[in-house]
Deep mutational scan, measured.
Amino acid sequence: GTVHVGDKTYHFPTPDAAKKFAQEIAKKLNLQVTVKNGTWQVH
């Protein structure tokens, strides 16, 4: 899975790992999470 946070991109071996990371970052930074075609965006 891929997660975009601002101008950074993180790659994870599984979709679940990407989802978990995106949700944790969003919670920590009080941001929104959207997913499109398996790519997570934190914004």
Rank of each mutant, 00 (worst) to 15 (best):
T9K: 08
Q23A: 09
G1D: 07
A26Y: 02
T34W: 06
H11V: 09
G1C: 06
Y10I: 05
Y10G: 00
Y10N: 01
V3S: 01
V33R: 00
G1E: 06
K19L: 11
K36G: 07
W40R: 00
D16E: 14
K19N: 09
V5T: 03
D16Y: 08
P15W: 15
T14F: 05
P13A: 13
Y10P: 00
L29M: 09
K19V: 06
F21G: 01
A26E: 03
F12W: 03
T9D: 05
V35P: 04
I25A: 05
L29F: 14
F12C: 04
P15A: 14
V33G: 02
A18K: 00
A26T: 03
V5G: 01
H4Q: 14
F12D: 00
T39G: 08
F21T: 01
G6H: 10
A22S: 03
P15M: 13
V5N: 03
K8D: 07
A22P: 00
K20W: 10
N30L: 05
G1W: 14
L31Y: 08
T2A: 08
H4G: 04
F12P: 00
K28Q: 11
H11M: 08
G1M: 10
Q32G: 07
T14P: 00
T14E: 06
A22N: 00
K20T: 11
Q41F: 15
L31R: 06
A22V: 05
N37A: 05
K28D: 07
L29A: 05
A17G: 08
N30R: 03
G6Q: 07
L29W: 12
G38S: 07
D16V: 08
P15L: 13
T34V: 08
H11K: 09
K19M: 14
T9C: 05
D16F: 07
K27P: 01
A22E: 00
D7T: 13
N30Y: 04
A26P: 00
H11R: 09
W40I: 08
A17S: 08
Q23Y: 15
N37D: 15
E24D: 13
K28P: 04
H4L: 15
E24I: 08
F21Y: 07
H43K: 08
T2D: 06
H4D: 05
Q23W: 14
K28V: 10
G6L: 14
F21L: 02
T39K: 09
P13N: 12
Q32T: 14
P13T: 12
Q41I: 15
H11I: 10
H43I: 13
V35W: 15
P13V: 08
T14H: 07
T39H: 15
T34N: 05
Q32H: 13
E24W: 15
Q23N: 12
V3P: 01
H43F: 13
K20P: 00
L31M: 15
V33Y: 06
V5A: 04
H11W: 13
T39F: 10
D7V: 09
L29E: 06
K36C: 06
H4I: 15
H43G: 15
A22H: 00
H43D: 09
T34Q: 06
H43T: 12
K27S: 11
A18M: 01
A26H: 02
E24S: 10
K8M: 10
A17K: 08
N30V: 04
Q23C: 07
A26Q: 03
D16R: 07
A18Q: 00
H11N: 08
K8Y: 10
V3A: 04
V5K: 01
G1N: 14
T14M: 04
L31W: 14
N37F: 05
K20R: 10
H11L: 10
N37Y: 04
A17R: 07
G6F: 15
